[in-house]
Lab assay of single mutants.
Amino acid sequence: YKIYPYDSLIVTNSISVKLPKDVDRTRLERHLSPEEFQEVFGMSIEEFDRLALWKRNDLKKKALLF
């Protein structure tokens, strides 16, 4: 996945969300650098992957990456 800054990946309720063209809309968190991922989620990507799907989705919603 290509890395993008968190600010360019957050999704708000506005209709005209302009995400970069090559971003996987269903896995926005994968486009964060490991350092920024840790900062946003408070855990590593590996720890995040071990969580239940509902928990990952809940965290993504709170981080505006859903």
Rank of each mutant, 00 (worst) to 15 (best):
Y4H: 05
K18D: 15
V17G: 15
I10N: 04
F37V: 02
S44D: 13
K60I: 02
K61D: 06
L59T: 02
E29F: 01
V23Y: 02
M43D: 00
E39Y: 12
V40C: 06
E47M: 10
S8Y: 14
L51S: 03
R30L: 07
I15N: 15
E46L: 12
R25P: 15
D49T: 07
I3R: 06
R27M: 10
K2P: 15
E47A: 12
L28A: 03
S33R: 05
K62I: 10
W54Y: 12
S33L: 05
T26N: 15
P20F: 04
L65Y: 01
V40I: 12
F41L: 05
Y4I: 06
K60S: 02
P20T: 04
S8V: 14
A63S: 05
K18R: 11
R50P: 03
L28I: 06
E46G: 11
S8T: 14
D58F: 11
L64V: 04
A52R: 08
D58W: 10
F41M: 06
M43N: 01
I45V: 09
S14H: 13
Y1D: 06
R27I: 05
V40E: 02
Y1L: 12
V23H: 03
D58P: 02
D22C: 06
K55I: 13
W54F: 09
N57G: 06
A52N: 10
Q38D: 11
V23T: 05
L65W: 02
D49A: 06
K21T: 13
L53R: 08
E39V: 13
V23R: 02
D7R: 13
E36H: 05
P34W: 10
R50H: 10
R27E: 06
S16Y: 10
R27V: 07
S44P: 13
D49P: 01
H31E: 01
S44H: 12
D58Q: 11
K55E: 15
Y1I: 12
F66Y: 14
E35N: 11
K18T: 15
L51Q: 07
M43W: 02
D22N: 06
N57Y: 07
K61S: 07
P34N: 09
E39H: 13
E29S: 01
R27N: 14
V23P: 02
I45Y: 08
Y1C: 09
S44V: 13
E47C: 09
L19M: 06
P20G: 05
P5V: 03
I10K: 15
D24H: 07
P34Q: 14
L28K: 03
D58T: 09
R50A: 13
T26D: 15
